[in-house]
Structure formats: structure tokens, C-alpha cells
């Protein structure tokens, strides 16, 4: 903790001397390897438990020693400046990082008592339980119906066409897209507007009824109106699903999440109730970030 303290002292001093020119980046080396996350990263009886997670891209370390729990049916927001590792961490939770050859993950990520990086765990099965929505809407170049039906089909969830129809309708309804597309289910998914495409991707994810939905900056490519719709949707989805959302939009995090985790340069600095993190941050880096001194 020595490093952090020094940094705090320096920061304060500089602030005192020149308050108006205080756009000073906290220095990188000021957090050492053995830092401790402040706030409340750990929970009783969590759905997901991550311990000492380190992630490397080839030789470069992207995530340092992260410990974080996620509770059932909560919305946890992960915020932080770009390159802080929040997306990398999110992608660890359903092993999307497996698709990158050079990526290595150390530590334990436990979902309902099962380490998901254990050899016995199948990534394919895992991803059915932990769905993901990406930054840029990526509907398949197929019909709306086929997009939503894709997951249930590959996992063999249905045997009858009518069951599949039900799943598609239900998913589209939950994603708030049904009213807009019910008459053109055979239309191309790529022909929808950006916001509709993203909701289609959410519907596609819901169709395999996952436990957890990961959202990797789901609104960064959308206009404000589409963003508002997605945020409404998140508020509805939290009743049935656990949601982990990465965002660089602090207001969005404040609006949609119940807990917030702040990442900085691959380290998890602070975790707490969203309200507390945004109003009374403990860590100076968190404070610096949410007050807009960098980011």
C-alpha cells in the first residue's frame, strides 16, 4: 500500500499548490503488483467468483490480480479509461478470450462452484450459460428469425418448429423488438437500424436462456435514442438475468447498474454500490476518473 499512499500525498500536494492546473495523470508505477482493491469486491454467496485473475497477451500483462464477485440478478458495471482491461476481464467470464491464440488466463473464475477454466468445463457449454453482447451490433447476414433461432438450433434445444417459433417470439419480446419486427421476421437482420440490430443481438443471446449476459459497451455505436431503449431493456432484463456491463459512459453506469467496478491499467481499483462509487469514491484514482480529470 506504500505506493498508493505516496501517490496520494503527491496528488494532494500538487492540488494544493496549483489547483487550477491539476489535470495531472496519476502515475502508472504508483500502483504496485500487490495492490488491494478498495470497497466491497467480495460478496457472500456470489454467482461468479473470480480470484487472483491475471491475463496476458503473449508477454504483455493486461489484467493484474483481480478479485471480484458477481451476485445473482445484479447489474454490475465495469468502468474505467480505455485500455484499462475491463473488456478483457469481461471476456474472461465466458472464455471468449480462447479465440485469441496469444491470450493466457491465470487464476480462478468460479461459476456456481465450478472453475470455468477447468479442463472438464466445455467452453461451448459455458457460453450457452454466459451470453455476450458486443460493442458493435453483429447480426448474422440472415433473416431476423434465423438470427434468433441460431442459438437454440445449434444447441439442439428444440425439436419442433412451433417450439422454435415460441422461443423466437419470446426472445424478441423480451428484447423489446417484437412489435417492430413481427411482420418481417424473414427480413434480413442486417437491414435493421443500429439500435434494432443491437436489440436483435440481445434477443439472440436471450434465446438460449443464459444465466448471465455480458455486455461489452453495447451502446457505444448507437445514437442516444437507441441507447435509451437499450438501457430500458437492461432495467427489465435484470429481473431474470445477471448482467455484467462494460461501459466508458459513466452516466450510463450510474443509470443502469447496482454495483460498479472501476478498473485502471489492468487493475481493479474500487468496487462498491454504484451510488457510493459515484458520490463518495474511496480511492483517489476513482475520484479522479469520475470527476473527469482523465479518461
Amino acid at each position: 500500500m506504500a505506493g498508493i499512499n505516496t501517490m496520494i500525498d503527491e496528488g494532494r500536494t500538487q492540488d494544493d499548490v496549483a489547483p487550477l492546473t491539476a489535470v495531472e495523470m496519476p502515475r502508472q508505477e504508483s500502483i504496485d503488483e500487490n495492490y488491494e482493491t478498495v470497497g466491497s469486491p467480495l460478496l457472500h454467496n456470489p454467482l461468479v467468483k473470480t480470484r487472483n485473475v491475471n491475463v496476458f497477451y503473449a508477454e504483455k500483462q493486461a489484467i493484474f490480480n483481480v478479485n471480484l464477485d458477481i451476485a445473482k440478478n445484479e447489474v454490475i458495471a465495469m468502468i474505467g479509461p480505455s485500455g484499462c482491461g475491463k473488456s478483457t476481464f469481461l471476456r474472461c467470464l465466458n472464455r471468449m478470450n480462447d479465440t485469441i491464440d496469444t491470450c493466457r488466463v491465470q487464476g480462478d473464475i468460479v461459476l456456481e462452484g465450478q472453475d470455468i477454466y477447468d479442463r472438464s468445463v466445455d467452453a461451448v457449454e459455458l457460453r450457452a450459460r454466459v451470453g455476450i453482447v458486443f460493442q458493435k451490433p453483429n447480426p448474422f447476414p440472415k433473416s431476423v428469425y434465423e438470427n434468433v433461432a441460431y442459438g437454440p438450433r445449434i444447441h439442439g434445444l428444440v425439436n419442433r418448429k412451433s417450439d422454435l417459433d415460441d422461443i423466437v417470439e419470446d426472445s424478441l419480446k423480451r428484447a423489446g423488438l417484437w412489435e417492430e419486427v413481427k411482420d418481417e421476421l424473414e427480413g434480413s437482420g442486417t437491414g435493421l437500424s443500429g439500435g434494432q440490430q443491437q436489440r436483435l443481438c440481445i434477443a439472440r443471446t436471450i434465446a438460449v436462456s443464459p444465466d448471465i449476459i455480458l455486455m461489452d459497451e453495447p451502446c457505444s455505436a448507437l445514437d442516444p435514442i437507441a441507447t435509451a431503449k437499450i438501457e430500458e431493456l437492461i432495467a427489465e432484463l435484470r429481473e431474470n438475468y445477471t448482467i455484467a456491463i462494460v461501459t466508458h459512459n459513466m452516466q450510463q453506469a450510474a443509470r443502469v447498474s447496482s454495483r460498479t467496478a472501476y478498473f485502471h491499467l489492468g487493475k481493479l481499483i474500487e468496487v462498491g454500490e454504484t451510488e457510493i462509487v459515484f458520490t463518495r469514491p474511496v480511492h483517489p484514482l476513482t475520484e479522479a476518473y469520475i470527476t473527469g480529470r482523465f479518461g
Binding site: 457460453r127 450457452a128 458486443f134 448474422f140 444447441h155
Partner: peptide, 12 residues
Amino acid sequence: SLRDGSYGLGAT
């Protein structure tokens, strides 16, 4: 992004 979308749904 299409590959990611498919893997993300648990496709082999």
C-alpha cells in the same frame, strides 16, 4: 465480429 457473435452464443 460475426465469428465472435457465433462463438459468444456457444457455437463450436
